[in-house]
Design a protein around this nucleic acid. Sequence first.
DNA 1: AATTTGACTTACT
DNA 2: TAGTAAGCCAAAT
Length: 127
Amino acid sequence: MSTFPKKKKKTTPDASETPKDEGGFFEAVYRVVRHVPRGRVTSFGAVAEATGVRGSARMVGWALSMSGSVTPAVPAHRVVNRFGVLSGRRHFATPTLMQELLEQEGVKVKDDTVVDFKKLFWNPAAG
DNA sequence: AATTTGACTTACT
DNA sequence: TAGTAAGCCAAAT
């Protein structure tokens, strides 16, 4: 980081709303990600929107970070950023695992980026 | 207890 | 057209 605001101002911590987690925001994300068909990929924003939270794409990634601790084994390797880049590859057991998994499913990955991402993109809201 | 960072994205300048 | 700013909510420092 080179250019960024010195003061972060974390708004008001009045987020005590706790809108029915309905099993948890995590499960919601996991459920959507699990809906991603094999050989297909999606983006954080798409999942976030499908979950009901638009703009909280960061939370999706954060939830997926602990996807390795869930039982149904969420295919987090099918979730990439909106550029099709395997941004979360370093969070896997091995930095190459994500690419390996994608290639095993038939998804070509070049330079940590999904080839034909736009073509392989799967919209959870359309599922 | 406060500040920064983070598997991101949209919008404005 | 490109670059900068802000927004998201939670964890880690």
